[in-house]
Design a protein around this nucleic acid. Structure first.
Lengths: 341, 341
DNA sequence: TTGAAAGCGATACCAA
DNA sequence: TTGGTATCGCTTTCAA
């Protein structure tokens, strides 16, 4: 099965004219007579003609397609970023090829090469949590392929990026926990090669300092984002002599899993232990207690990434000035941190 | 910014031969001498040559791209289907363009036309909940563009589909509720123009019959999948003289929202009211109580949809035999239906 | 065994 | 105002 599309030639033959004329008439070129334009346009609409975008791509050496690599499609935060990307791209006449790395460096390299062979005009990427060596992206960047980082980035590659203000978000989270009376605030951190993780940790540490809360290194545990590691991390915190009275988790997955364990141990949230997570999903309202959350503007991140892509595409390599956009977060206070102080 | 790729011409020039020879050598054509093949292959690898897929597409009149329309990207079920589609497509050398209808018929028609202009080789679609008139898809099908329905379908279009056994899934859900002692089982149904919704309702009704439970029409309420309607539906059920002792919800969103309201009214789940939903997401474990669920094989659905696409693509129109694949569901029993009977 | 050339569909330059 | 033609990169037929 397949289906042949109408071409300029078909229309030209039908009207006893040339493809050149038809092409120009459809583009409303000034040199074509109104009469001819009318005839052509009318027939084109009637026959439902649409230019073959593949032919145009070949001629223009542009695919009008943006490649996107996310760590995980089935992850609320990324799927909302994807919605933002898709909408922005489509309304600019671009298509989007989405791929996922499944948080694996190897897969990231593979899908990148698949994307390149389909001739994308640029790449938007949130690198996998495993990625510490960015050669594959550097090569791309050096070959002057537009490259935009979103959510996660590599500081060494001087290209445009959209990130959220992780530092300030974490700071706000800790500040909030202190304001409801928590004194022993723990942090379940994410993989430390992720810039976000580092930033959230810094925000956490600096907030403690600013609030004159003593920093206890045992209150900082690091998870690799697997279920098992959340269990280890949480258990370690709960087995301390001086148990924390609040946990600030790197992301919602860590928060959800950790809360399950805490509740399982018979501890009350928020009164025994308050919780704050970084998240972006409706689910924070459905769990019990609902989760106080640092909200990230996921949809906007997607839109901005596309804008940065176009800026880079339309600049010439010599005077390309990379832009870094830092989006603000918003603290949404829910039941998991509403304590009687 | 843009980036010029290596072409056959470049290689041919470098080796003082013709593009035809290079092309054939790379394809391991029998007429080319081993010596020449070796020279060409070596240079191609060295220079990291990759054929321009756009040129191939133009020549072959194939885009090697599948269009996919889902109602919502940021919806766990669909994003897992998307993962299945993406993996299956990529490993077959195909790309995927994902679009979403946001459950709007108008948007569905729009993105479909965008997809068509980017010359897709076929379409996989789960129509929006608003779509009752399928002309846009019929046209496609009549023009012999491969068309596959997944999750949702239109019975009138005789093309291949992958669906889940909604009827049996619903039957199992009700049977389970009865087995834990529920006698007054209510159903919050979805929009009745969705085939899944109809099937789940039938399954519910037939299960009641099979179990000799009296069917009470007031126990069937229909939601349009908005928050407000869930509230209305749930409240109506709770205000009845003979309150239901179980609610079977069309999907997880309805279940989650309805559970919130039930808990809010001070009723205990599962002892006052047990719950079963249709879902496909990790969140069923995080809510309280965890939700008993009819699990749908989302990932597999995506894979199968791609297989059906290839079957259709490789058949010729005359003897094309549409296939309908019905995937089985699995009942996952969690706390929301674990009652002491 | 290799090369020249036509053709996929659209655009744009140069002629007429 | 219109038409002929080269071009994008690749494949494939025909000729050498």
């Amino acid at each position: 099965m397949s289906y042949r599309q109408l071409t300029l030639k078909d229309i030209a033959k039908e009207l006893n004219t040339s493809v050149a004329t038809v092409s120009r008439a459809l583009k409303n070129h000034p040199s074509i007579s109104d009469q001819m334009k009318k005839k052509v346009m009318q027939l084109a609409t009637e026959l439902n003609y649409h230019p073959n975008s593949i032919a145009v791509s070949l001629l223009k050496n542009r695919s009008y397609t943006i490649g996107v690599i996310v760590p995980e499609i089935a992850h609320n935060f990324y799927s909302i970023v994807m919605e933002g990307i898709e909408n922005a791209a489509i309304s600019a006449g671009y298509n989007v090829l989405f791929c996922m790395s499944k948080e694996s460096k190897e897969r990231e390299v593979n899908v990148l090469s698949t994307l390149l062979h389909s001739r994308i005009d640029g790449l938007l990427i949130a690198p996998s949590k495993e990625t510490t060596d960015y050669k594959h992206l550097e090569t791309l960047f050096n070959r002057e392929m537009p490259l935009i980082f979103f959510d996660r980035h590599c500081a060494e590659i001087p290209t445009s990026k959209v990130l959220v203000d992780d530092y300030k978000g974490a700071f706000k989270a800790v500040d909030h926990l202190a304001s409801v009376g928590c004194k022993r605030i723990a942090h379940i951190a994410g993989p430390q090669n992720l810039s976000n993780s580092q930033q959230r940790l810094s925000g956490y540490i600096d907030a403690l300092k600013a609030l004159n809360l003593k920093q206890n290194d045992n209150y900082i545990v690091t998870s690799d984002l697997t279920k098992e590691s959340v269990r280890t991390c949480t258990t370690r915190l709960l087995e301390m002599n001086e148990k924390p009275d609040a946990i600030f988790a790197y992301n919602s997955f860590l928060a959800f899993e950790s809360m399950l364990i805490v509740k399982d141990k018979g501890l009350k949230i928020p009164d025994d232990i308050a919780f704050v997570g970084f998240a972006n999903e409706p689910m924070i309202s459905y769990i019990e207690p609902s989760l106080t959350t640092v909200l990230q503007p996921a949809y906007r991140m997607g839109q901005e990434a596309v804008k940065l892509f176009f800026n880079q595409l339309n600049s010439n390599a010599k005077k390309f000035a990379p832009e870094t956009l830092i989006l603000e977060t918003k603290l949404l206070v829910k039941a998991s941190s509403r304590r009687k102080t």
